[in-house]
Measured scan of single mutants.
Amino acid sequence: QVATSTVRILGMTCQSCVKSIEDRISNLKGIISMKVSLEQGSATVKYVPSVVCLQQVCHQIGDMGFEASIAE
């Protein structure tokens, strides 16, 4: 089973930030795809909930120095 959710990301300033986040999160087990939008300050994450949760994704992004939260 696959889920798609949006994560809000604060602190991104350039495409390099976007690429860094996409590269790191895409390597997590259970992540199918991730598309980060600098303009919208968010990311669309396609993932397998039984393998990885959005809290883990937000935590990983937080470790990179950005502020991440699950969009309502």
Results as ranks from 00 to 15, higher is better:
Gln1Arg: 06
Gln1Ala: 06
Gln1Pro: 15
Gln1Ile: 07
Gln1Asn: 07
Val2Lys: 03
Val2Trp: 15
Ala3Leu: 15
Ala3Pro: 03
Ala3Ile: 14
Thr4Met: 10
Thr4His: 07
Ser5Arg: 12
Ser5Pro: 00
Thr6Asn: 09
Thr6Gln: 09
Val7His: 00
Arg8Val: 12
Arg8Phe: 12
Ile9Pro: 00
Leu10His: 11
Gly11Pro: 03
Cys14Asp: 07
Cys14Thr: 06
Gln15Val: 11
Gln15Leu: 10
Gln15Ser: 10
Ser16Ala: 13
Cys17Leu: 06
Cys17Phe: 05
Lys19Asn: 10
Lys19Arg: 13
Ser20Phe: 07
Ser20Asp: 12
Ser20Ile: 10
Glu22Ile: 08
Asp23Trp: 08
Arg24Tyr: 07
Ile25Ala: 01
Ile25Asp: 01
Ile25Phe: 09
Ser26Ile: 10
Asn27Lys: 14
Asn27Arg: 13
Lys29Leu: 13
Lys29His: 12
Gly30Gln: 04
Gly30Val: 09
Ile31Met: 03
Ile32Lys: 03
Ile32Leu: 08
Ser33Ile: 05
Met34Leu: 09
Met34Ser: 03
Val36Met: 01
Val36Ile: 13
Leu38Cys: 06
Leu38Ala: 01
Glu39Leu: 13
Glu39Tyr: 08
Gly41Ile: 05
Gly41Asn: 13
Gly41Asp: 06
Gly41Phe: 08
Ser42His: 08
Ala43Trp: 03
Val45His: 03
Lys46Gly: 04
Lys46Ser: 15
Lys46Phe: 14
Tyr47Pro: 00
Tyr47Leu: 02
Tyr47Asp: 02
Val48Tyr: 15
Ser50Phe: 07
Ser50Gly: 13
Ser50His: 07
Val51Asp: 07
Val51Gly: 03
Val51Pro: 00
Val51Leu: 14
Val52Gln: 02
Val52Gly: 01
Val52Pro: 00
Cys53Ala: 09
Cys53Asp: 12
Leu54Cys: 05
Leu54Met: 11
Gln55Asp: 10
Gln55Gly: 09
Gln56Trp: 14
Gln56Phe: 13
Val57His: 03
Val57Ser: 01
Val57Thr: 01
Cys58Tyr: 08
Gln60Leu: 15
Gln60Arg: 07
Ile61Ala: 03
Gly62Tyr: 13
Gly62Asp: 13
Gly62Phe: 12
Gly62Ile: 15
Asp63His: 15
Asp63Val: 14
Asp63Phe: 11
Met64Val: 03
Met64Gly: 02
Met64Ile: 08
Met64Glu: 02
Gly65Tyr: 06
Gly65Leu: 05
Gly65Ile: 05
Phe66Ser: 02
Glu67Asn: 11
Ala68Ile: 07
Ser69Glu: 09
Ser69Arg: 11
Ile70Ala: 08
Ile70Leu: 11
Ala71Leu: 14
Ala71Lys: 08
Ala71Trp: 13
Glu72Ala: 10
Glu72Arg: 09
